[in-house]
Design a protein around this nucleic acid. Structure first.
Length: 268
DNA sequence: CCGTTGCCCTGCCAGC
DNA sequence: TGCTGGCAGGGCAACG
């Protein structure tokens, strides 16, 4: 479910609510929630939270001692801060209890989400690519990364080892604003198209962050509130409806087993 | 190396 | 109403 804007919203909310707290205990109620490569979670006891950031689509909970607890929410994961006596709710997979008795719960209906405790350079160990909102990233970088790739540009955008944070929704939305058809081979975009694509990605992602993300089925922020960007989708989920620019029909195709939406008039 | 496919899981909804 | 098949925003391993 969550892509960059949703994870950013969650990370900011958590940062405000758990920074400075010290961990007392952690309990795991679905063992596979813990990534096989994780350091033992027993190391969490006594650690203090220095802050919460986003690395790609990971929520990165930075801890004392150089540790990071990286949480990937996948499709249905939620991280919620609760009062001391918060009930065990449906789909709860893990629970951190702080010394002040407040709790941070991880719930995940589909059990795809994972937590991984790391020490040292988290971004490197998580193998995430460049962040589209990183001001250091240029359209030239984008062009170089796509050079020679025959993969459809929409599929390329979903590869987290190149750019990180873009998922199925924002890939379609950004390509619409850039006027680029999703099936175009990534390596064949012109310099101007790469520049337009990077601009569109940033525009869409920033707008979505401002709306608190998009809520379709499961997404809520760290306080349980839904985002509203789903009301502003231009093409995503709008197959058969009219394009907001040209009034023509929005089309749905499947690329790499993912629904992809575009306007065949506005996108070339 | 590159690109594609199947699979991990559960919930929801349309259609019968 | 009840069942079933298809679908969901992600990512990884296995395969050709």
């Amino acid at each position: 479910m969550p892509e960059l804007p949703e994870v950013e919203t969650i990370a900011r909310g958590l940062h405000a609510r758990v920074r400075g707290k010290r961990i007392a205990t952690i309990g795991i109620s679905w063992q596979r929630t813990v990534d096989a490569r994780s350091l033992p979670l027993s190391a969490l006891a006594g650690k203090q939270i220095n802050g919460v950031t986003r690395i790609g689509k990971f929520v990165a909970i930075e801890l004392s001692g150089g540790f990071t607890l990286a949480v990937h929410l996948r499709m249905t994961g939620r991280l919620l801060v609760g009062s001391p006596n918060v009930q065990v709710h449906a789909h709860e997979r893990a629970r951190i209890t702080f010394r002040d008795a407040s709790v941070l719960t991880f719930s995940d209906a589909r059990k795809f989400g994972r937590m991984r405790l790391l020490r040292g350079d988290a971004a490197a160990q998580l193998a995430v690519g460049r962040d589209p909102l990183d001001p250091q990233l240029t359209s030239n970088d984008l062009k170089e990364m796509m050079a020679g790739r025959r993969t459809p540009v929409k599929v390329w955008l979903l590869d987290q080892r190149r750019l990180s944070g873009i998922g199925n929704i924002y890939a379609s939305e950004a390509l619409f604003f850039a006027g680029i058809r999703p099936r175009r081979a990534a390596g064949r975009l012109t310099s101007a198209e790469c520049a337009g694509l990077l601009k569109s990605l940033r525009l869409v992602l920033r707008r979505a962050i401002r709306s608190g993300g998009s809520s379709l089925n499961d997404y809520v922020d760290s306080e349980g509130k839904e985002g509203s960007f789903q009301k502003q989708f231009s093409v995503y989920g709008r197959s058969g409806l009219h394009c907001l620019q040209c009034r023509g029909p929005v089309r749905r195709i499947v690329l790499a087993q993912r629904s992809t939406f575009y306007c065949s008039t506005c996108q070339r």
